[in-house]
Structures are given as C-alpha cells and as structure tokens.
Amino acid sequence: MSRHLNRRQRTLLLVFCSVIALLTVTVAGGLLSGQAMVTDFSRKNLAPCMAYPFGTDWMGRDMFARTLAGLSMSLRLGALTAGISAVAALVIGLFAATSGRVGDALTGWLIDLVMGIPHILLLILISLACGRGLTGVVAGIALTHWPSLARLLRAELLQLRESPFIRIAEKLGIGRLRIVREHLFPHLLPQFLVGLVLLFPHAILHEASITFLGFGLPPEQPAIGVILSESMQYLAMGRWWLAVFPGALLVLAVMLFFTLGENLRCLLDPGSVQE
C-alpha cells in the first residue's frame, strides 16, 4: 500500500516540477523579450562566458535572453494552438458519436482526408493562405493537429455509446445533450487532458519547423525557428553556441511535455491504481 502511495507521490512530484519548469521558462522569456532585441556591436560574436552564458550573436544580442524569449513565444503559441486543436477534436468526436451513421461517416472521411495529406505540406499551405506571420502559424498548426486526437476520442465515444448505461438512458428518454454532459464527457476527460498535453510538443516542433523553413514567424521575432535558421550560416565559422543552446532548450521543453503527458496519463488511468 505504501509503495503505491509513494509511486503516486513521485508521479505527482514529476508533474508539478514539469509544470513549474515550463511556466518559469514562459514567464522569464516574456520578461526578457525586450532585452533579447537589444543590439551592441561592441560585444558581438562572444563565446559563452560568465557574463553571457549562451554567448552573443553577430549583432551583439544576448543569446541567453534571446533563446528564453524565443522558447517562451513557442510555448505560448503551443498552448494556444494545442488548445484550439484539442477543443476541435472534442467537438468533432462528440458530433461523430451523437449524429448517427451519416455524421460518423462524414467525420471519418474528414479525418482520413486531413491525415492523408503530408502534414508539413498542409501546414505550410494553410500558413501561406492565411498570410504567414503569427496568424498564419496559429491557423496552420491549429487546423492540422486535431485529427489524431479526434480519431481517438471518436473511437472511445463509439465504444461508450454501446454501453448498457447509455442504452438505458436512451430508453428512459434522456436527451442527447444531457447524455453527453453527464455520461460521455466525464469518461472522455482523462483522454482529452492527456491528448491536450501531448499536442503541445507537436505544436512547438512544427512552429519551429515552418519558421526555420521561412514560412512562419517573421525574422524580427525572437522565435526558436528564426534563431536556428539564422545560426546555420555561422556554424561553419565555429560559432556553435548560436544553434546548440537554442536547440538543446527546445528538445528539453519537448521532453518535459512528453514526461508531463505520460505522468498525467498514469495519474488519470484507473488501471494504474492497481500497478
């Protein structure tokens, strides 16, 4: 019994530490956004040192402040786009489960259509159609990251719809909205929350990817994709710190999200109580 409690306590501690670390980076990066834009040519191309832990770039900008500001922007964009995608997936899944065979077939066709198009290509096309920049990035990521979660929620809802308690509720004349609110949605909440958290790293990586390729945020924004794209032309000159530190922090943030999602799944899964 005590081992079970200790295991859950460790999981809760990991969840808490992951959330605190991500919030700290987000807040610190927001506070350093002004400093990240400051140029000083008297300190350009400095290697990492005590004064500048991540070094400086060709314009004398502090790479520590610039990296945190870029990662903070990526995290905020990830929160916005993952939230939109998760809500869209939930709405589509509920529609498929409550609208009969025609609605379910239409939903399945839409999910297959979106998943059948190469992801990065669809993301770039939507971003370009929406005018690139911040609006294009948000639209592109939000409109392309819902299918996987929608398919999962749809399958779960279709299984729940055949459950005896749902059948009994329908026989008793309970309306569909009440069934969704009181029976279906509470069962979906754990999968929805875990899916929402796991959408974050995908959103962050795809934002960095299309920005790196030049289809995302404008160059004046201190985004991780912009930083990595600009650093490529200076790596041959030995200025490794321009890409290593931003890339390492991006990977660390993604790993924290995956850790958070897996631990959250363990906490919300009733079967894990018996492990």
Score class of each variant (00 low, 15 high):
1 M>C: 10
2 S>W: 09
5 L>T: 11
8 R>M: 13
10 R>I: 11
11 T>K: 00
11 T>V: 13
12 L>S: 12
13 L>W: 12
13 L>F: 13
17 C>D: 03
17 C>I: 13
21 A>K: 01
24 T>H: 07
25 V>F: 04
26 T>P: 01
27 V>G: 10
27 V>I: 15
29 G>M: 06
29 G>Q: 06
30 G>C: 09
32 L>Y: 04
33 S>I: 13
33 S>Q: 14
35 Q>W: 12
36 A>H: 01
37 M>V: 12
39 T>K: 14
40 D>W: 04
40 D>Q: 10
45 N>E: 15
45 N>C: 06
46 L>E: 14
46 L>C: 11
46 L>A: 07
51 A>C: 04
63 M>H: 05
67 T>L: 01
67 T>A: 02
75 L>R: 01
77 L>Q: 05
80 L>A: 15
82 A>G: 13
83 G>I: 01
84 I>F: 13
86 A>D: 08
87 V>T: 12
87 V>F: 15
88 A>I: 15
95 F>V: 14
100 G>E: 06
103 G>N: 05
103 G>R: 08
107 T>P: 02
107 T>N: 09
108 G>T: 08
110 L>W: 07
117 I>T: 13
122 L>F: 12
124 I>F: 02
127 S>C: 15
127 S>N: 05
128 L>V: 15
129 A>E: 03
131 G>W: 05
131 G>T: 07
132 R>P: 03
132 R>F: 03
133 G>N: 13
134 L>I: 11
136 G>S: 06
141 I>P: 02
141 I>S: 03
141 I>W: 05
142 A>L: 07
143 L>W: 10
144 T>Q: 07
145 H>Q: 13
147 P>F: 07
148 S>H: 12
149 L>V: 02
154 R>L: 02
155 A>Y: 08
156 E>I: 12
156 E>A: 15
157 L>R: 04
159 Q>C: 14
160 L>F: 11
162 E>S: 14
167 R>Q: 13
168 I>T: 14
175 G>S: 14
176 R>F: 05
177 L>P: 04
178 R>P: 07
180 V>Y: 05
184 L>P: 02
185 F>E: 01
185 F>N: 00
188 L>Y: 03
194 V>G: 07
194 V>I: 13
195 G>E: 04
195 G>H: 07
195 G>K: 03
201 P>C: 12
204 I>D: 10
206 H>R: 11
207 E>T: 08
208 A>N: 05
211 T>N: 04
213 L>V: 09
214 G>H: 02
215 F>H: 12
216 G>S: 09
218 P>I: 03
221 Q>D: 10
224 I>E: 00
224 I>F: 02
224 I>A: 03
226 V>R: 06
226 V>W: 01
226 V>C: 02
227 I>M: 04
230 E>I: 06
230 E>K: 08
231 S>L: 02
231 S>P: 03
232 M>P: 01
234 Y>V: 04
236 A>N: 11
236 A>L: 10
241 W>I: 00
246 P>W: 09
247 G>C: 09
247 G>E: 05
249 L>Y: 06
252 L>H: 07
253 A>P: 05
255 M>T: 08
257 F>Q: 03
260 L>F: 05
261 G>I: 06
261 G>T: 00
264 L>G: 02
267 L>R: 06
267 L>K: 08
267 L>F: 10
268 L>F: 11
269 D>W: 09
269 D>A: 10
269 D>K: 12
270 P>M: 11
273 V>G: 04
